[in-house]
């Protein structure tokens, strides 16, 4: 499980009881009421990275989830892994990523779009990787 930079699990904040209760701060509060990403969709396997050098973000304007994403994405990270590590629903994560992207704090590389195929070299790398498992 991912630990926040200060050694705190995201769920250790007092808002959490357990999985059934869910967070007392509902997800729409995290996203300030928005339910749709400002961009249409972030593919599950799109790669996110915090821009470098990492800009200072004002904690008054950016929530802990935004800052945690920026911290995790200092290293290129796949959207699905972010959702899993942060235990945030994808629908919520998409909104947060949209905020960060719109403010130029992250870059996003989407995987192959329909009709676009990986090169034979990548496929061969995958094949050899699988065979070596």
């Amino acid at each position: 499980m991912v630990m926040a930079g200060d050694g705190r699990h995201p769920r250790d904040s007092a808002e959490w009881f357990d999985d059934d209760a869910g967070p007392l701060i509902r997800h729409f509060a995290v996203t300030r009421g928005r339910t749709h990403a400002s961009r249409s969709d972030f593919a599950m396997v799109a790669v996110v990275q915090t821009v470098s050098p990492e800009p200072h973000v004002d904690p008054l304007h950016w929530g802990p989830e935004h800052r945690e994403i920026l911290r995790l994405c200092r290293r290129a990270t796949v959207v699905a892994d972010l959702g899993s590590d942060l235990d945030l629903p994808l629908s919520v994560l998409h909104v947060l990523l949209g905020d960060l992207l719109d403010n130029g704090l992250i870059t996003l590389h989407e995987p192959f779009t329909p009709g676009e195929r990986p090169s034979p070299k990548i496929l061969r790398d995958v094949l050899h990787g699988l065979e070596a498992l």
Binding site: R39, S40, V45, A46, V47, Q49, A76, V78, T107, L108, H109, E110, P111, F112, T113, P118, S119, K121, I122, V126
Partner: peptide
Amino acid sequence: MASKHSDPEALGHGLTAL
């Protein structure tokens, strides 16, 4: 929508997720 695909062998900051 995608960022640059100028280097197709190094999509996504050198990380390729399929």
